[in-house]
């Protein structure tokens, strides 16, 4: 690694280079480790966000925000802490997105239309909400995963978070507690209730 292009004194450049080489090597290793970690969780994180938000773009924004936040704030932390930290950031991002959506709904819910051309605004058929779910939603609803997602959406937020971390992500109680920001006992309680509620909603046949 040569840095003499940014320094006028070759001797100084060599000293600085020798000093910075281990740090640069460590940064490179850290970047590679983060790349591997994020590659393993990004699709799962997206599915979790999509499951909660039911919106592709919002889910993508939340996942990207979680990645940036982890890299900016917690890259220097030991790699075994990344997973609970990442899922905590992700859950906070999902909650924030839901809150923003609720606020938008309260503020602008009465507003007839927030975009589109004049023709769209004037078209009563286009403005009328579709009473039936779209083809994708219909397909999903008929599938097993669709039922699971709907059942998870119906759970209280903390129970859903406990189920996602413990069951879908395979995290242990301690990591789940770190991700949820609560005690181990609370995790066990939320998870137990989530299992019961899902069992009831999905039925014995699922």
């Amino acid at each position: 690694m040569h840095s003499s292009d940014s320094l006028d004194w070759p001797g100084l450049a060599q000293i600085a280079d020798a000093e910075s080489r281990p740090a640069a090597e460590a940064a490179l290793q850290q970047s590679k480790a983060l790349d591997r970690f994020l590659a393993t969780v990004e699709r799962r994180a997206y599915r979790i966000a999509q499951l909660s938000l039911r919106d592709h773009d919002e889910a993508m924004d939340v996942v990207q925000g979680a990645m940036l936040r982890l890299v900016r704030s917690y890259a220097v932390r030991p790699s075994e802490e990344w997973k609970p930290l990442f899922y905590r950031i992700l859950q906070n991002g999902i909650r924030d997105a839901q809150r923003r959506r609720n606020v938008r709904g309260r503020l602008f819910g009465w507003w007839p239309s927030s975009g589109g051309s004049e023709d769209d605004d004037l078209d009563p058929v286009a403005q009328h909400p579709d009473p039936l779910p779209g083809p994708v939603d219909r397909l999903m609803a008929t599938e097993s995963i669709g039922r699971l997602e709907q059942a998870l959406r119906d759970l209280p937020a903390r129970q859903r978070e406990a189920f996602i971390c413990r069951c879908l992500e395979g995290m242990d109680v301690a990591d789940t507690a770190a991700a949820m920001g609560c005690s181990d006992g609370s995790v066990k309680t939320h998870y137990f209730r989530a299992l019961h509620a899902l069992r009831e909603r999905l039925g014995e046949s699922w």
């Binding site: 600085a16 740090a23 990645m67």
Partner: peptide, 25 residues
């Protein structure tokens, strides 16, 4: 999205390294 996040990390490391190189001078 992942590459963008990691690029930010590399930029931070580069800027810190630049400062480190200039520190003796």
């Amino acid at each position: 999205a992942r590459q963008r996040a990691l690029a930010e990390l590399r930029e931070d490391a580069h800027s810190t390294r630049g400062l480190r190189l200039w520190r003796p001078a």
